[in-house]
Every structure is written in C-alpha cells, then in structure tokens.
C-alpha cells in the first residue's frame, strides 16, 4: 500500500514555477496555512492561485502573496477589511486578477473534477462578467458558457483522514475542500489527525481517498 503521509515541505516539493494551485478555505476557515507556509519555503513562484478570497491578514495565502510568488489570483471576493496585502499588490499593478462569481468558481472546479468540458450557467447574464462571452437561450432562459478550472495541485485542509486518504471535514471549514480535491492533478490535504484505515465511518466520508495524494498531519 502506498504511503500518503509526509511532512509539509516534502508534500509540496513537486509544485513548479507557473503552476495553478487551488487553495481551500473561505477566509481563514479551512485554509491550509501550514501547507502554504511550506510552499513559501519551497520557493515556487509565478503561480496562479485559485481561492475564494485573496488572503486575510498576514498569514496563509496573504503571506504567499507578500512573498511575491503569485502572478495571478482567480477568486470571487478579493476586497475585504483585512486584505491589505492583495490590495497593495493590485494597486501597484503587481498581480493579475480574474474575478469569478463564487458559485462559478465552485462549479468550474466541480466540472474539472467530473470530466465536464463546459457548461451553461445562468449566473452573471447581463452583467460585465458575461461581456464578450458565448451565451445560449435554453428553454427561454439565457445562460453563459463556463469552462472548467483545473489545478496542477490542490492544497486543502480537512479535519481527519485515515491512512488511505479518506477525509472528513469540520463545520463550514469544509467549503471548497471537497471540490478542489477532485479538480487537481495532485491533492495535498492537511488534517489535524490521521487515524488508522477503517476507523472513519464509511457513511460519513466526504472526500473519498481516490482524490487524495498526500497527507500532512498538523496537530492543532
């Protein structure tokens, strides 16, 4: 049986310059802070980061941005009261922003993980988001064509894992984790505890092991 468990720095070592990295979390809930710290130490740059927000405070994603490793942010809500790192980079023209409505962000990653080539979505019809985009009338309603978002790597935080890589989450820290886990070539999960295989209730598993490539235990 393959061993998924490793330390954070080893887990992220295959991230290359120019990669697209999916980063879990809604604000700080579910953000894999220790994996991001390892990515900063690892040194990969010119990254495209897909995450709901563009960093909070000075830790986690904000620290990666501050280290100058990110070329482009793909997110739904960069502007927050504590997003000063992103705000500064954006105003200085040092970072590119692709703004994606939150549901499209989730569904485009879901599509990537589910082998869907593209899909028609009603969100954003008649708004600047849809300008210049392909649309179609279906049963009298207008939809915008949306394409999948694939990641090279996903960094997510879950609650518990078993050694096989099955994951359970905790409360609203689940958010983008299960979707991102399906959408990346390599998924790395940081969890607060790794239990023996068989100890998680199979009925309660949210992310099945097939989607998980590396596990890093970070004791809270």
């Amino acid at each position: 049986m393959k061993t998924l468990t490793t330390d954070a720095l080893t887990a992220v070592k295959e991230v290359r310059d120019g990669d697209t990295v999916l980063v879990g979390g809604f604000g700080m809930a579910g953000m894999p802070v220790e994996l991001i710290d390892a990515l900063i130490e690892h040194g990969a740059g010119d990254l495209t980061i897909v995450s709901n927000n563009a960093g909070n405070g000075d830790t986690g994603l904000a620290a990666l941005l501050a280290a100058g490793r990110v070329r482009k942010m793909v997110c739904s809500f960069p502007r927050q009261s504590d997003s000063w790192v992103f705000d500064g980079l954006y105003r200085a023209g040092k970072i590119e922003l692709e703004l994606v409505p939150q549901g499209n962000l989730a569904e485009r990653m879901r599509a990537a993980g589910a082998g869907i080539g593209a899909f028609f979505c009603p969100t954003g019809v008649g708004t600047p988001i849809a300008e210049g985009r392909e649309t179609r009338q279906i049963n009298g309603r207008e939809y915008v064509l949306e394409y999948p978002i694939h990641g090279d790597v996903a960094l997510i935080r879950a609650h518990h894992a078993d050694r096989l890589g099955n994951l359970v989450y905790r409360k609203t820290a689940r958010n983008f984790g299960p979707v991102m886990a399906t959408a990346a070539r390599t998924t790395i999960a940081q969890v607060s505890q790794i239990v023996e295989t068989g100890e998680l209730d199979p009925e309660a598993i949210v992310t099945p092991s097939i989607y998980v490539d590396r596990l890093v235990e970070v004791t809270p």
Binding site: F77, L97, G103, G124, G126, T127
Partner: peptide, 26 residues
C-alpha cells in the same frame, strides 16, 4: 428589478462579487 450591488465602476476600486450574482440568478 435590475440589481447593482457589487461594483461602483470606479477605476481604482477593487472589484469583489462573492456570491451575489449566483443569488441574484437563483
């Protein structure tokens, strides 16, 4: 019934939409 609640259009504003467009559509 058109809704505008995510962007003032000001050139120096950082746009942020979150889930507003999805809610409006759904």
């Amino acid at each position: 019934g058109d809704l505008a609640n995510w962007h003032t259009g000001a050139p120096d504003a950082i746009p942020a939409v979150g889930g507003a467009m999805d809610l409006a559509a759904g």
